[in-house]
Amino acid sequence: MEQEPIVFCKGGGCTAKLGPDVLSRVLSQIPKVEDPNLLIGYENSDDAAVYKLAEDLAIVQTLDFFPPMVDDPYIFGQIAAANALSDVYAMGGEVKTALNIVCFPETMDLNVLGQILLGGSEKVREAGGVLAGGHSIADADVKYGLSVTGVIHPEKIFANNRCEEGDVLLLTKPLGTGIVCTANRLGEASKSAMALAVKSMTALNKYASEIMKKYQVHGCTDVTGFGFLVHLCEMLTDQYSACIDASAIPYIPECPEYVEEFYLTAAGQRNRNHVESQIAFVDCSFAMEEILFDAQTSGGLLVSMPPEDGAAALEELKKLGLPCNIVGQVTARKEKTVIVRG
């Protein structure tokens, strides 16, 4: 019997997230929790919560799920799991357990669900974690992800907002997965572009995080649904600015062509609307602007670290086999939060 294809939602992967404007307004209404053991909460838009259990032990908690952005259910399961696990690695933590989060139509072939869960379980196993259960509901559309618990030493957390002036900014994966997946849904993405996007999205940030632990890290986040520029602005807060070299940005090579054909996402436009007033583009193409605003699914780590550490870490990261680079530098506060030079 021919396998029933996944029915796509209006937006797949991290492009399905609520926009940063809407989310920030909602979160601002929630009272802040006063607990000295809550080391990282939601106030600074960090990647995961960190709660201290003992002087040498804290837990890292996160969850993430979304609709499919690729046709293959097994690959979708891998991507969704890698994306959820990434938040633990962005904090510098170690994955311990994971729980499946499943939304699935009762009328769809259960073999599709089996392939999604198989892909996810294999990534949890690769992470060194244990898949301990989960929760499922009947829904009109497919959605999948994980709730993940990790551990970390309370004094070794990679927070997202502790950049220092003079730091270099290192990006560990290429940008452009949202643009490529959009082109692919319209039947216009090349096999090579989609292959690189899938390779990037299924790659665990575990290996990049392990490299970073060897060096001094001042700030770290993973680049996901809010795109490179929104995540960077969150890292810089109102204390610093950054100068980005557009020519150094790693991205999937076909992206400028797809941007010219306007294979763009609503999520990318929400990201632009949220931070455009904070960005100065100097001799920068429209295509590069869109790549920098593009919502990423299971994107790479963006790390702020001393220049000498950044150069050494980059040489190790290159061995992981994905495009990566030092893309800019943290500066003293300027009128604009980020200056992008073409």
Rank of each mutant, 00 (worst) to 15 (best):
V7Y: 02
K10P: 00
G11I: 03
K17L: 15
L18M: 14
G19T: 12
G19N: 13
P20M: 10
V22H: 10
R25I: 06
V26P: 01
L27G: 00
L27Y: 13
S28N: 13
P31K: 12
V33L: 15
D35I: 05
D35Q: 06
P36G: 12
L38G: 05
L38V: 11
E43M: 10
A48L: 07
A49M: 15
V50L: 05
K52I: 09
D56G: 02
D64L: 13
F65M: 11
F65A: 10
F66W: 04
F66S: 12
M69C: 15
M69Q: 12
V70T: 13
V70R: 01
I75Y: 05
F76G: 00
Q78P: 01
A80S: 15
N83A: 15
S86K: 13
G92R: 02
G93T: 03
T97R: 12
A98K: 03
A98P: 00
L99T: 13
P105W: 01
P105Y: 02
D109Q: 05
D109P: 00
G114W: 00
G114D: 10
L117H: 03
E122K: 13
E126L: 11
A127L: 07
A132G: 07
G133P: 03
G134T: 12
H135A: 14
I137L: 06
I137G: 00
D139S: 14
A140C: 06
A140L: 09
V142S: 01
K143M: 03
Y144K: 03
G145I: 02
V148G: 02
V148R: 00
I152N: 04
H153W: 00
K156P: 00
I157Q: 07
R162W: 11
C163W: 03
E164C: 06
E164K: 14
E165S: 12
G166R: 08
G166S: 11
L170K: 01
T172I: 09
T172N: 05
T177M: 04
G178M: 02
G178S: 08
T182K: 15
N184V: 03
N184M: 07
L186N: 14
K191L: 13
S192I: 12
K199N: 13
S200Q: 12
K206F: 07
A208R: 02
K213I: 04
Q216F: 04
V217E: 02
C220G: 06
T221L: 01
G225S: 07
L229N: 03
M235T: 08
L236R: 10
L236N: 08
Y240H: 15
A246M: 02
A248G: 05
P250D: 10
P250W: 11
P256V: 10
Y258G: 04
Y258M: 09
E260N: 14
Y263H: 14
Y263A: 01
Y263V: 04
A266F: 08
A267S: 15
R270F: 07
R270T: 06
H274K: 14
S277W: 09
Q278E: 15
I279N: 02
A280R: 14
V282D: 11
C284L: 07
M288N: 06
E290G: 01
F293H: 09
G299V: 04
S304Q: 08
P306D: 06
P307M: 08
E308K: 15
G310D: 05
L314C: 09
E315H: 05
E315A: 15
L320W: 02
I326F: 01
V327M: 03
Q329H: 10
T331D: 00
E335L: 09
K336H: 11
T337S: 11
I339K: 05
R341Y: 08
